[in-house]
Amino acid sequence: MKFNSIKTLLIIILIIGLLSWALFPIFYSLIISLSGFELPTKFGFPKEITLSNYIEALKDKEVWNAAWNSVLIGFGATFISIFTSIPAAYAFSRSNNKLSNFLLYLFLFFRLFPWVALAFPIFYLMARFRLVDTYWGVSISHSVWIIPTSIWYLKGFFDMAPLELEESALVDGANPIQVLTRVVLPLVVPGLIAVSILAFIASYTEYLYSLILTRTHTTTLPVLMAGYLSEFKVEWRKISAISILSSIPMILFYSYTLSFMKRGTLTGVIKG
């Protein structure tokens, strides 16, 4: 490809434009989160730069409590969905009859369902089971939406694992559960980690079910943060700091998952 000056200029303008679109909201909230008592009321930088908003956010018991709840519920949802998805995905991967194909597509269909429509019946059920405002209740409600996706991803990984090892293990007298845990699972560990991370992210970012199923005891971070916006006087500096801090786990997770998914699942999704 040949470069001439007009084209180079055009490319530079496009790059600046696109990056401003993506970064200005982040950059601006970073500035607000670092600014002192006086917030800028016109275009420009704040008069004073301070870390006190972050310190205030990190000293807040409520924030720590919500973050801890989010982590616990995230682990619970990951645990439930991974341990139910592994055997199901394995069975789907190794059997090819009408019933299993039907069930597999049924699980895909779950993924298309509008979550909000089931909010009330789920709340009703959880109230019946006395699971409202408990860690297990919120975790289960999240995992209902994570399981279908996890099964589809895991099935993809199981399909790629070679069959010869399993057959020789069966000949040696292992039962299917032993084959799955001792032979197949070690082969798909990287995939398993990626799917677990995606499950955790899905639960960590979930808002709707956390909103209806948590009261005071199990409030998650997204619910606490959303609440700040409806307060009478919005404390922009503190909540900007919290929204920056809350994305730190996501940076760690995405950097692993994206590098892993780039070739595999992402292109797999597109090629259909």
Binding site: A22, P25, I26, Y204, T205, Y207, L221, P222, V223, M225, A226, S243, I244, S246, S247, M250, I251, Y254
Partner: peptide
């Protein structure tokens, strides 16, 4: 922008 949760 992907790294932010919906509430953020």
């Amino acid at each position: 922008p992907m790294i932010f949760i919906p509430s953020s």
